[in-house]
């Protein structure tokens, strides 16, 4: 694959940033498009390696299904849970309008 290959366009950067709910300035869009292409060029190095039939490491430890008893334990009181909320109303988080 040629090194000059463009992997991602400015429009795609914009789209992916939107998927991540991350607004970008025009300047950031330009800069990131350039940088992402350089970084993705380098990441192509992985293609040199044959991984046919190799299982993915989903977890370095071979732990499966860690269970504990389903017991009711004390939880955070509402006033503590709300203490860091940028906006609250009574005993609730105040969220932006959805509809």
């Amino acid at each position: 694959m040629a090194l000059s290959k463009r992997h991602i366009s400015k429009e795609e950067v914009e789209h992916v940033a939107w998927l991540a709910r991350l607004e970008l300035s025009e300047e950031e869009k330009e800069l990131y498009t350039q940088q992402f292409n350089d970084i993705l060029d380098y990441f192509q190095k992985l293609n040199e390696l044959d991984t046919e039939g190799v299982p993915p490491t989903l977890h370095v430890l071979e732990l499966v299904n860690v269970f504990r008893k389903d017991e009711v334990k004390p939880s955070l009181p509402p006033e503590e849970a709300l203490a860091n909320a940028p906006r609250k109303r009574g005993r609730f988080f105040e969220a932006p309008r959805i509809l």
Binding site: R21, N84, A85, P86, E94, A95, P96, R97
Partner: peptide
């Protein structure tokens, strides 16, 4: 919403987010 910085702007969910 639950903690951390929130923009001053009062818009819909996606925009505030």
């Amino acid at each position: 919403v639950r903690y951390g910085y929130r923009t001053e702007v009062d818009l819909d969910w996606n925009q505030v987010f």
